[in-house]
Design a protein around this nucleic acid. Structure first.
Lengths: 342, 342
DNA sequence: CTGTTAGCGCTTTCAA
DNA sequence: TTGAAAGCGCTAACAG
């Protein structure tokens, strides 16, 4: 049997449709007894308001799109959890859009979100050099909050990780421990976040009077496997090209997933973390604290970021002015056991 | 300026609204030149069809709800990735609903999904004893596919992990390696999945002529921290209550996240994995292969499951009969390095 | 092949 | 305090 509509409710309650609507929405001008009647009718019919119909007339969907590059990296589900939690508290529903770090797919997904008339978007990470252009044209008229997409940070409310400073801090930490031959494992070359972290790394090197050496940087793909491969390449390089005069003693790795993979690579090569090679990661994903040895990393309050983003979005949607629409977060060094003084 | 509607497009193209609609939907009976005109008009106006309006009339939203208990466990994002991938290929959009393993919240989230008129639901894991009742009444009329929610497996198309057999296999593997004092770390006591895995564990014990000992089972919460705590409890128990006559030599742990935490617990107690205690997990999450030592576990093809679920859902939505609507998957033993013969 | 008409389920004036 | 009517943007007969 078909789902009951408000018409059915109205009929059963013996009132007009408009009264039924007002009653169900608890408008103050409806007589209490009428509300009662209507509610009973609704209950009896197991009535569920049709959000689609409502959206059509109110011209707001209370849908928000959440655009993430990759669900396999725990970083993004953590953000998703934060967004979802406050969204549902605020009466929004979230649509998931996974871009798989693929520009074409991203465009496609956005198109869908637009057609669904989402009220707003939270755009998390995964930005890529040049991803900017086409978005601008199509995205006006839509509230959007970006997380760690530096290319939008000046046009949209944003939450940004200070990747440059974070990377700098991480690298400097290694330097302070006495390391001089410090490698960097980044994400995909065209990833903006990865580029920023590379920048911070170079900056710290420079400030410490250490040379930047190309042979010490390798790009991975943010996955554990990628980290493993990158570390293996690095270790081979050291072995074959440079000899033992300047062996790698530490590495700053652009995210924890790769760092954990890289640690494995170190062991596979018969070396020890941190005995032979110190490692510092980025993100502080939930297993970081319990891997062996526990991973020293730059922590980012992921879930809070998601919640914060959704809150900002909701505020703009309410027409409120954001007093602070350009949040920049400093990652925090969590010293665990993968770094050791040289 | 307001978004263009199909009316605007029709006017600009000099045709009626219905013709515009037909043209945009590429109906075969529209003259090619007309389609051309209409498309140009649409492009010029940057027209985007309003999916909300369409849904209202077609009475299908092409929305599917994805209900998961917890985004922090990599297991679920992996499923989400699978669902999302095939959903978007099939023209569906997925709404995320995170229940946080909380029955009240689950009910609330489902209510929202129903109001949004999702065409179907994929319900992944997190089932809890007694979660069944209220769902039945409210869920008819909705296509739904369940993943690892045994309580629905006989009323809805389902993909189920054979948890009992998987757990049995895992435990038996330990037994074959010569272990006789094998602990079990489960999820929350009322988690059905955890109960099944416990059942498999007991079954294997029994078949092997080993006694079931309550002091060897502890319940965690599926998180790394929970695994750590559970292992610590276990180790303390051994220390204090039982003395050294029957020290724990192995543990089967209900998911990888906890297993990784538990490994850490073992080390904290000054013992070694697998030297002192062998460990086997469940799920094969993506870091399992690279932790130290690489985790032996029962693999479940998570992402494929998500995709499969969405495919099944789409089929039922199309009115196709599912030839195989009760898929049962056998977890596969992945031997890595956390288990050793005694 | 194209246009006219009706209506999806709801909210929202506006009158009564 | 309630009801009648209009209309959100679209698709779906149906007639021409």
């Amino acid at each position: 049997m078909k789902a009951a509509t408000i018409k059915d409710v109205a009929r059963l309650a013996g009132v007009s449709v408009s009264t039924a609507s007002a009653a169900l929405n608890d408008k103050p001008f409806v007589r209490t007894s009428t509300k009662q009647k209507v509610r009973e009718a609704a209950a009896k019919l197991n009535y569920r308001p049709n959000a689609i119909a409502r959206s059509l007339v109110t011209n707001e969907s209370r849908l928000v799109g959440l655009v993430v590059p990759d669900m396999a990296d725990p970083y993004f589900p953590a953000i998703a959890a934060g967004v979802d939690e406050v969204a549902s508290r605020l009466g929004y529903t979230v649509i998931l859009a996974n871009t798989l770090r693929n520009a074409k797919r991203e465009a496609e997904q956005i198109r869908v979100l637009l057609e669904r008339r989402v009220d707003g978007l939270v755009f998390a990470g995964g930005s890529t050099v040049g991803a900017r252009g086409w978005l601008d044209s199509t995205l006006d008229n839509l509230e959007i909050v970006v997380i760690d997409r530096p290319e939008f940070s000046f046009t949209s409310p944003s939450i940004t990780i200070d990747n440059v400073r974070g990377a700098e801090k991480a690298t400097r930490y290694l330097v302070q421990l006495g390391h001089r031959d410090i490698a960097f494992i980044g994400g995909p070359v065209n990833s903006l976040v990865s580029q920023e972290r590379l920048r911070g790394y170079r900056f710290a090197l420079q400030e410490s009077g250490l040379p930047y050496r190309e042979e010490l940087v390798v790009h991975g793909d943010f996955t554990p496997r990628g980290g493993l491969q990158a570390m293996t390449i690095l270790l081979n390089r050291m072995e074959t090209r440079l000899g033992i005069d300047q062996p790698l003693t530490a590495a700053f790795i652009a995210n924890d997933q790769m760092a954990i993979g890289a640690m494995h690579g170190v062991r596979l090569a018969g070396k020890k973390v941190p005995g032979d090679i110190s490692i510092i990661g980025f993100d502080d994903i939930n297993v970081a604290a319990v891997v062996e040895p526990p991973l020293t990393t730059m922590a980012v309050p992921t879930k809070e970021i998601g919640g914060m983003a959704m809150n900002m979005l909701a505020k703009s949607l309410n027409g409120e002015k954001l007093e602070d629409n350009r949040v920049v977060l400093q990652p925090q060094l969590i010293e665990r056991e993968t770094c050791i003084a040289r």
